[in-house]
């Protein structure tokens, strides 16, 4: 596979490590979250058959975490974003 890195251009997927669903960005605040909420965050997945937003880490490269939108049916990559930008857009900050 090829991941079109937003900063570096197309890179072989072998340079990356995949973590999983990009919902892992949405970590609840541990002081206010219930165990149930933290459980759902850590353990439950939509696991869609279709477009899937997922976290890839450019370990053999610039160490960016990316959010890759990719079809789990065809492997087509639809979008690649810097995870940091996605996180900020989702309201994460400090």
């Amino acid at each position: 596979m090829i991941i079109d890195h937003p900063l570096l251009g197309p890179r072989d997927a072998a340079e990356f490590v995949v973590l999983g669903d990009a919902s892992l960005i949405d970590r609840p605040d541990g002081m206010t979250a219930t165990v149930e909420e933290m459980h759902d965050y850590a353990y439950l997945r939509d696991n869609p058959a279709g477009d899937h937003r997922e976290l890839w880490y450019h370990e053999q490269g610039d160490r960016s975490w990316l959010v890759v939108t990719r079809s789990t049916l065809t492997h087509e990559v639809i979008k690649v974003e810097l995870a940091r930008n996605v996180a900020r857009a989702q309201g994460r900050s400090r």
């Binding site: 960005i25 976290l55 370990e59 900020r88 994460r92």
Partner: peptide, 18 residues
């Protein structure tokens, strides 16, 4: 390697403005 990866995850994805 793994700890470094996880720290980068926390830094970029969880608390991007730290």
């Amino acid at each position: 390697v793994l700890v470094f990866r996880n720290l980068e995850f926390a830094r970029q994805c969880l608390w991007p403005d730290l």
